[in-house]
Design a protein around this nucleic acid. Structure first.
Lengths: 221, 221
DNA sequence: GAAAACTATATTGTATACATTGTGATTTGG
DNA sequence: CCAAATCACAATGTATACAATATAGTTTTC
């Protein structure tokens, strides 16, 4: 993408993620164009992309709305993500290069540093967590898998999940990553897949608990 | 989508599927616009969509090319499709309605009719096969799954697979469908998932054999 | 003669004007 | 007063002109 359409994409996406554009809100191309300081052409391009990524939904009559997700929708997304990241982990265990393994180790150390205090650095956690998963995807070496996962891992709900993590969640996440590393070091695809599937499934329950207002400690032990 | 952009999408896609635009070929927006009888604006929209569906690839310098798939790429696509259709079958077994079950039964009977002669009706097979799988996806009731699968099941390679089926392949496919129906009738998600996974995996080997010029009978027994 | 820079051309990116279509309000007929 | 039709308005869809950028061919310089 080039300058204006990429800018429009980033800005609209940020508005949705930040909640400035609430779920269900109708959005007009011209208004977005003014907000982004570009014409409708690149805005339309950005909207189509966001629509394909399920950030935006269009009515039968071609009106655009910010997507609104039910808890069932959210569980669907997590189930699919678990399947695909599990597959990615299995493939990665069989193909990972020493350099990629070193990179994973380094990112996981940074994650450990970010969560080992009583006041964890959530921003740093998010950053290194993203790198960690991206490296696994790279090691899996499947362009199609990357393409499909990109439509799941950056969606609003998934993004907000990390915001509801508490210290115990973050540390548990770090432990999962360490176990994944062990599986990679041994080239054990089945192990890696199981750990990853559980990792994602736990993330769903963390999100669901946070959103139902109850947060039983037992779920995370 | 509206008139012109939908038209452009269909036509360009047809050109790729038919081979009129061979893999690796560079395509220019203006040329496509002339071919489709519309302006560049809807053509660009269609190109972005085809790019997201991996029919088209863009170079770092923004040139568009018809996608060229290696055998490894193709196997990736089949593996992912197997995973996702397997998940769809599992969910469908647990949620299918009597009306959907009746529809599946009817479609499968039509498939049986199409392949039970020595000169099978491949067009009818394709039509009812598509309906069969679409109904399963509908029964699975996961918009996200539908969304992601749509990016896999209509791609050039997958489409061409059916073209390489012989009578035995078609009849084997019919038997798989019958077994799926049995699993659905019993609400056995695990069974449905296994059958579907094998069904898709076999399709890959059929395609791979046809494209390597060798076609060992043992693969299909 | 080779390499680098520059110019001409081809292609894509963006803005804007216009066409089409959906939406809602108002009016008119019953 | 209700319903249906019609008109005005608002939003999206398309075409075209123009801008920015890449590509290739030529020239220039060492």
């Amino acid at each position: 993408m080039s300058r204006a359409s990429e800018l429009a994409y980033e800005q609209i996406r940020a508005m949705i993620l930040s909640g400035a554009l609430p779920p269900g809100e109708q959005i007009r191309e011209e208004w977005l164009a003014e907000q982004c300081g570009v014409s409708r052409t690149p805005v339309r391009e950005a909207l189509r992309r966001l629509e394909s990524e399920l950030f935006i939904r269009r009515s039968e009559r071609q009106r655009s709305f910010v997507a609104d997700w039910s808890l069932d929708d959210i569980e669907d997304a997590f189930v699919l993500r678990g399947l695909m990241e599990g597959l990615a982990a299995r493939r990665a265990a069989q193909r990972i290069t020493p350099a990629q393994l070193a990179s994973l180790t380094s990112e996981n150390r940074a994650i450990g540093d970010a969560v080992s205090t009583s006041t964890p650095d959530v921003q740093a956690f998010l950053e290194h967590n993203r790198n960690f998963h991206a490296t696994i995807l790279e090691a899996a070496n499947s362009p199609r898998l990357t393409n499909l996962l990109a439509r799941l891992i950056e969606q609003p709900v998934v993004w907000r999940t990390a915001q509801s993590y508490d210290v115990a969640d973050l540390q548990r996440s770090h432990k999962d990553h360490s176990e994944l590393l062990a599986a990679f070091q041994r080239g054990d695809g089945g192990w890696a897949e199981s750990v990853m599937a559980g990792h994602i499934r736990r993330a769903f329950h963390t999100y669901a608990d946070a959103h139902l207002g109850k947060k039983p400690g037992g779920t995370l032990t």
